[in-house]
Each structure stands twice: as structure tokens, then as C-alpha cells.
């Protein structure tokens, strides 16, 4: 079944989204966002895969060997870096939220206070 790897990506995406909407803790919510973004790694690597392709590293294989697409792998690296920065910023906001409101349950953060 050729769409199976993409269904795995959608499955991870849906679990991450479920975690985000049902979250009762801002730190848990940031982790769920990380899970959601992990779906994009699976999608990218799935899109770039070529049947029988080796890793795109020619250090120890013949130059004529067919390899999987190196461009999407580079994009996955960009993706990982962005995910790390987004998590860091959101966790910093969670720290300040806890200091200011004494809770990190999104349901108890009813309205913005100046």
C-alpha cells in the first residue's frame, strides 16, 4: 500500500492535535506541538524516499548508487531547528505565565489581565 507512510504522518498529526486541544498544562501543550511537528518529519522523509535508494552519503558507496532525495532531508533538518526554537520560546512564555498567574492550566487563564 503506497500511501501507508503518509497515513502514519497524518496519524501522528492527529494525535498531536488531540493532545493540544485536550491539554490541561502549558508544558504538556508544548510537547504536543512537538509531536504534531514530528508528523512533518515523517511526511518529508516519506515524500523523498525512492525505492531501493541508499542514504545520500557518498563517503563509502559507489558514485553510481541510487540514493533517496537529499533536498527533503535538508528540509527536515531545517524543520528540527525551527521546532527547537518554537518550543524554547513557548516554554519561556509558560514560565512567565506561571509566575504571573500562578497556574499553567489553559482553562484557568480566562482572560488577559493588563
Amino acid at each position: 500500500m503506497t500511501v501507508f507512510p503518509f497515513l502514519v504522518a497524518i496519524w501522528i498529526l492527529c494525535w498531536g492535535l488531540y493532545g493540544i486541544v485536550s491539554s490541561r498544562n502549558l508544558v504538556h501543550l508544548v510537547i504536543c506541538l512537538g509531536v504534531t511537528q514530528a508528523a512533518t518529519y515523517v511526511l518529508l522523509l516519506g515524500v523523498g524516499y525512492r525505492n531501493g535508494g541508499a542514504a545520500p552519503i557518498y563517503a563509502d558507496i559507489a558514485e553510481s548508487t541510487m540514493v533517496v532525495d537529499p533536498v527533503v532531508q535538508a528540509l527536515a533538518l531545517v524543520d528540527v531547528v525551527v521546532e527547537a526554537t518554537v518550543s524554547a520560546l513557548l516554554l519561556a512564555v509558560a514560565v512567565q505565565t506561571h509566575k504571573r498567574f500562578g497556574t499553567i492550566d489553559p482553562d484557568e487563564l480566562h482572560s488577559l489581565r493588563g
Partner: peptide
Amino acid sequence: FGHYPGPYGILIEETGVAGTSATDL
């Protein structure tokens, strides 16, 4: 799945090592 037609990947696969001397594409 397994038949990615992306032209850039194929181009880099064919010319990348000669063009950059990097074995990690």
C-alpha cells in the same frame, strides 16, 4: 511512495559530489 519525481534531488545526486566535493549531499 518510493517514486519521488523531484528534479532537484536527482540533479544534485548526479552532480553534487563533483560540484561541491562534499560526499554528504
